[in-house]
Design a protein around this nucleic acid. Structure first.
Lengths: 203, 203
DNA sequence: TTATTTTTCTACTGTCTGGTAAGTAGAATA
DNA sequence: TATTCTACTTACCAGACAGTAGAAAAATAA
């Protein structure tokens, strides 16, 4: 038998930790080369091991991708949970969410979520991935509708705005380079300025 | 020897037309499955021929992808050329450009450009593809700066705004479905409303 | 009709890659 | 010390896919 830690008992903390390292190395490799171009040999090399070692921690490339996405989605969900302190306006919660969201998508797992599409996922796990994305979308749309109700946002189509904002902020995850010149905070300020105040000169 | 039309003379119009069909079928297939997942057998099937027939019109999968992107970039460049009727404000030219841009990226070749990244292109042709994208970016940034000068746009960072708008509008090419419910015109109206007026209630 | 050129086909190859089988060094346990 | 488990390794396979060789249809020209 292969082994893993102890077949039935609680999986050891050491194993779980090493598995995280494997997933993170995979995410970095996928992000660097693209999921379909990156091979498991590439991932293994990033970790300094050989390919079969990966199979000690996951049973397929698809599972690795799925779990990378799940790591990101969980981080984002907990970003959601912090928001609904309901003394905040919809506008404030929207800003707060996209600040946290952007931080996540500029890290390994978040980037991996942004750089892959649902169709890259195996049919079996695709549904859960899509559901996670949709949850975020719905949560944001609700923030928007709340903002319209509480008067902090003007009348806009929540569906269109949500998608437009996700696409724009997801873009940051694609091109933002930590080692680059501009820092994330000032980029976010500019983005919020654009979305909140618009770019037209007020009449 | 393989053949092509007449080795030295002008390539026949019939050949060129058929080549377009090949490229368009390839773009559709790439868009449907993703470039790296789509095989040339898939492309051939979409056309109703067998794989080797494709090699009569292109000499590699990479060349096909490159030419699909080139078709899109050319369409967009000519969208640029129509804009600089200089009695228009920067704001008006920006709107005009993104209307045409969105139309292009919702068609086969444009989608193909949006759905592929520079790293998907062969090293040899990547540079030209990137240059084309950068040209568009710079043109838009100039429109923005002109708009600020002529007073039609408020003071914003042209670099950030350009990227944010490209990312948001590119998104449309990813999810927009011609057979779906919403029509492109109303989506565009909503997007321009968001970007121009912003979403905050004016103080 | 015959000859020639254009277009596509059948059959194949080399390579790459996800995944597996089986074994092993070292740590932990008894 | 003997035994078992952990965390890998080397060696390999089967299938898939880009690309090629060369023949065979179609189409066009003479």
């Amino acid at each position: 038998m292969a082994g893993k830690p102890s077949a039935k008992s609680q999986t050891s903390a050491k194993y779980d930790q090493r598995r995280q390292e494997v997933l993170r190395a995979a995410a970095r490799t996928f992000n660097r080369l693209g999921f379909h171009v990156a091979t498991l040999d590439d991932v293994a090399e990033e970790l300094g091991v050989t390919k079969p070692a990966l199979y000690y921690y996951a049973k397929s490339k698809d599972e690795i991708l799925f779990d990378c996405g799940r790591m990101a989605l969980e981080a984002m969900s907990s970003a959601l949970d912090k928001s609904p302190a309901s003394e905040l306006t919809g506008r404030e919660r929207l800003i707060r969410f996209f600040r946290l969201y952007t931080e996540v998508i500029c890290e390994d797992f978040g980037r991996c979520l942004v750089l892959t599409e649902p169709r890259d996922h195996a049919a079996k796990s695709r549904h859960e991935n899509v559901a996670g994305r949709r949850n975020l979308n719905y949560a944001v749309r609700e923030m928007i509708r709340d903002g319209i109700k509480d008067g902090s946002l003007r009348q806009v189509d929540d569906r269109a705005l949500s998608i437009a904002m996700f696409d724009a902020f997801n873009g940051i995850g694609r091109w933002y380079d930590e080692k680059g010149a501009s820092d994330l905070t000032s980029i976010l300020d500019q983005y919020f300025s654009i979305f909140l105040q618009g770019i037209e000169t007020p009449k």
